[in-house]
């Protein structure tokens, strides 16, 4: 971007001397006229928060993960023992795998269906505004609260889904002339949270349900930046809808798609609430994620060192994502 402002300025000793004689308020005012000074001053609140509540606890966490700290004790330095212990633990392996599957599946579902929904919402129709606000609901209500509704809908005994399945099953029996049984017998339907693969499916479903509106609305914002003339050109060329999407829409919403997807990847990768409410990691750890395992190790079994280490295992992967995105953004910047 071309700029007409003067090049980066520094505080020269001359201005310092000149301002020293002015009253305090004026002096501060003059100081703030200096681009560099103002730049730093405006950064202070954000940096203060970040240093005190992110950087410092982060380094504390790194330290903790190197100790054998259990609740109520200071802990002794043990080097990388916690990490080694975790790497030997099958529960940890499972949690790592689970997190990878969970994150990839949920992010892909959210991105694909979110794009679809955004395209639908981008059309003109009556109640468009209202519909947009409605589909946003899952994203804005507290996850634990909507998670509770899902927990109830997945309940092993009272699941509404299973009730419907059973009802259909019973319908089939009566349709085919079989005796209508008074007692439905032992039919419980799918164990939504009880069998390992279905439980994984269920937590992915709930996470996707919740995150999808965020994708849809962000993509919608992206779609609205696409000039309609481009499509008109496409229409003349006689391209079909899919080609238009692939060659015109997608490249244009790519920047926002990348940002949103990465943001969602991070949030999904570190998800805690869905699992905490629905399964607490069960059945037999088949739905534990890094975050819930860290919570179980650190908070409920009191091994703060091990818990911190489990949480820190997230960092290398998140770090790679961060680096990739920084690289990507920079390339986009220089390219466009």
């Amino acid at each position: 971007m071309k700029s007409t402002t003067p090049p980066i300025s520094t505080v020269s000793s001359n201005t310092l001397e000149a301002t020293a004689r002015l009253p305090l308020g004026k002096r501060i005012g003059q100081w703030l006229e200096n681009e560099a000074v103002l730049g730093y001053v405006l950064m202070v609140p954000a940096l203060l928060l970040i240093v005190v509540f992110i950087a410092y606890p982060f380094s504390l966490g790194v330290w903790m993960s190197l100790t054998d700290k259990v609740v109520g004790t200071p802990g002794n330095f043990v080097g990388l023992a916690n990490f080694a212990k975790l790497l030997r633990s099958e529960i940890f392996h499972q949690a790592a795998w689970n997190t990878v599957i969970f994150t990839i599946a949920a992010t892909v579902i959210k991105a694909v269906f979110g794009m679809w929904l955004a395209i639908l919402l981008n059309r003109k129709f009556r109640l468009a505004r209202f519909t947009r606000a409605t589909v946003l609901l899952p994203f804005i209500v507290p996850t634990v609260l909507s998670g509770l509704a899902w927990l109830w809908m997945f309940d092993a005994t009272f699941s509404v889904f299973n009730w419907v399945l059973k009802w259909l099953w019973q319908m089939e029996i009566s349709v085919f002339g079989l005796a209508l049984k008074e007692n439905w017998g032992y039919v419980r339907g799918p164990l939504w949270l009880g069998s390992p693969s279905l439980a994984m499916f269920s937590i992915i479903l709930v996470n996707a349900w919740r995150g999808l509106p965020f994708f849809a609305i962000s993509f919608l914002a992206g779609l609205q930046t696409v000039p309609p003339e481009l499509y008109d050109a496409g229409n003349i060329d006689g391209t079909n809808e899919f080609q238009k999407f692939w060659h015109i829409t997608l490249p244009l919403v790519k920047p926002i798609a990348v940002v949103v997807t990465v943001f969602s990847f991070v949030v999904t990768f570190s998800d805690f609430q869905v699992v905490y409410i629905l399964t607490r990691g069960g059945p037999h750890n088949s739905t534990h994620l890094f975050a819930t395992l860290a919570y179980q190790l650190g908070m409920t079994s009191g091994n703060l060192g091990e818990g911190a280490a489990a949480a820190l295992f997230m960092f290398p992967i998140l770090g790679l994502v961060i680096l990739w995105q920084l690289f990507y953004l920079r390339r986009e910047d220089s390219g466009g």
Partner: peptide, 9 residues
């Protein structure tokens, strides 16, 4: 840097 990574410290 997600909260789940930071909450213990």
């Amino acid at each position: 840097v997600p909260p789940t990574l930071l909450f213990i410290p």
